[in-house]
Design a protein around this nucleic acid. Structure first.
Lengths: 369, 369
DNA sequence: TTGTAGGCGTTATCAT
DNA sequence: ATGATAACGCCTACAA
């Protein structure tokens, strides 16, 4: 039973050695008789003993645990408050990197709790933390950072002293819009943003403007509509845009979910995509390739965001004093059909048949500063 | 800096009290002067101190950490080996339940490691573990269970002594197939299974047979094709089924991803869904409602699986000797259009416009044994 | 209401 | 190659 777990003392005694020897045997067994080691390991296995993690951590000053902090993984009731779907991908990447070095991954959502509560429930339990944008405000972030090494995600622009990993939102959107402008000759584009002050939405709108300006076209000061990053928000945004007197040729959305909402409204109004109005998204969520027409969008390397964040953290733990690193990962345009491109002629042999597409990387390559 | 973290001694000294007082203040402050408590908390905050989790855990014999163990959250290279998408939902549910009681959630994938390695890297760090089906074989599960309390997921049938939470795969599939039989009068159904020996696939095929037998129809001994739970596997399965001489009216798939593959093949062969051949899935992944026609499938309460698993674990920790609990959660048929049903006439006011559907629960209600 | 002090199970530093 | 033993930072009787 798990009620009375063995300790290192009992293993040592049963094996006729000291606790020090048992400890050595468990941690690689450098500089000890191969035979002794084998014997110790055998009795340990036999007794079903594993070192107590807490005691080990206390003595060695290392928990072997890395933490990831989100704003809200899941609100429980209101899906609108949930973190975006791509976080799952990030998690998977982080888990892989963490397991890869033999550590374990701790995950927690802030759910509006203060930095102090969090520190109490998480910071004390991990060797380091990865903080997602929106998860904590500035003050709380500072506080946390004073108790445990941290890496931030999505705060590339900031002057904060922490290591950071971000995605090239701006370049990715610019790249996509340039495709609309250059390949399809579109001129009258509307932009549907996410919640007003979110960095992602802001950066993507900036990329939208970049492309227009580079093409010598007039660039709007603000998005045509706010879709709050949700499908229903996208629907409302589309209604408002279509109601205006402006003859729009394309609706560029700051994420895929809003694009799905926009599509639904167009269909309901008997407007064809892309013939009448092109639609694009951002994120490349799994549903986007199953829409008809399939959604042209921008793919973010979320898996890599997760794994690189962990790498940065591990590096920081190894060299606490090394200068700050900030890396920006390139995005990739995923050209499907909602922009007006035709289905690629032949089925690529390796890929699933429903995934014919073309890809273009954002000009920005992974960067360290 | 995080390099030299304060200890309880320093806080105590600075505040002019004993370490016991500081400890009390941090843990609720029962039976102590309100003023003293305030003072302690203030200095602690000022010094940026939080109790060291390892020391705390060692002394109190409680880590405040719950773990979840998967087979493979993400294989890194081969998506075919990844855990199904719905695991993300489960994780979100588990995270919510865990955070709700102030604990933290540890996640790890077995990735083929032995039970011993895992125990070493995870079991020693948590108060209890949730084990997913496929994550560990019988012997390793036993070994783990002897070092830490565990709850299993998806092993309802087994005679194991652990608490378990499962989903009614069999009843869900039976329910869906009955719909095909009774509402659409279909008679010649083909079944596409997942990997041969997976419990989920087996249970779903059993449900398929249940429905046929109950309707007095001949029931096959084995699935018509194996689609390995993947989209491309579904494509191959469809090819093989369509190549046969049997005139099939519906292709029932053991999960959504295979159904997507099947659909693609039908479309490529100019076969209409559902007019020529109906298609159904299982899982209700997010993409399924965006297909055209939208996919009729079975919804699993994955979020609840996660949260209930944690609840069971917490209960077990509270009462280590109470008898085993095994709960089975009901599934729900999600009737969309790929089965032949028409789009519901009016748009439901509350829901997103692209989600018109009907729902039926599997007859099995949440059950405790 | 507060303080004293032993113990939690390891690791790591010295000896031997 | 192995053994004693002092930390590690906190909790919790027990005492005051």
């Amino acid at each position: 039973m798990a009620s009375a777990r063995a300790t290192i003392y009992q293993v040592a005694q049963r094996c006729g050695v000291s606790t020090a020897t048992v400890s050595r045997a468990m941690s690689g067994g450098a500089g000890m008789s191969v035979d002794t080691r084998r014997r110790v390991l055998a009795t340990a296995a036999e007794m079903g003993w594993v070192p107590n993690g807490s005691a080990k951590a206390l003595a060695s000053n290392r928990t072997g645990i890395l933490g990831v902090l989100f704003h809200d993984l899941d609100s429980g009731n209101d899906p609108l408050l949930d973190s975006p779907l791509y976080l799952d991908q990030v998690l998977r990447g982080a888990e892989q990197a963490t397991t890869g070095v033999g550590d374990a991954l701790l995950i927690a959502a802030t759910r509006g709790r203060s930095g102090r509560d969090l520190a109490y429930s998480v910071a004390g339990k991990a060797d380091g933390l990865v903080l997602f944008a929106r998860s904590l405000n500035r003050a709380d972030t500072q506080a946390l950072a004073s108790m445990v090494p941290i890496v931030t995600v999505g705060r590339a622009g900031s002057r904060w002293p922490h290591d950071d990993i971000s995605v090239d939102n701006r370049g990715g959107m610019r790249n996509l819009v340039e495709h609309l402008l250059e390949q399809h000759g579109l001129r009258r584009l509307a932009f549907v943003s996410g919640p007003p002050r979110t960095p992602d939405s802001i950066a993507r709108f900036a990329g939208f403007r970049d492309a227009l300006i580079a093409a010598g076209l007039p660039a709007p000061d603000k998005p045509d509509a706010d879709g709050g990053f949700t499908e229903s928000g996208g629907e409302q945004a589309a209604e408002s845009i279509l109601t205006g007197d402006r003859q729009v040729q394309a609706i560029v959305c700051a994420n895929d979910e809003m694009a799905i909402g926009v599509r639904a409204v167009l269909a309901a109004r008997r407007l064809r995509t892309p013939a009448d109005i092109a639609v694009t998204g951002f994120d490349d969520i799994s549903a986007s390739r199953h829409l008809s027409p399939s959604l042209t969008t921008v793919h973010q390397p979320m898996h890599e965001v997760g794994s690189r964040a962990i790498s940065l953290l591990l590096q920081r733990l190894r060299e606490p004093t090394k200068p700050r690193t900030s890396v920006v990962l390139a995005t990739e345009s995923v050209i499907r059909r909602s922009c007006g491109c035709r289905r690629p002629p032949a089925r690529p042999p390796e890929r699933s048949m429903s995934d014919g597409l073309r890809r273009t990387r954002s000009s920005r390559t992974p960067t360290e500063q």
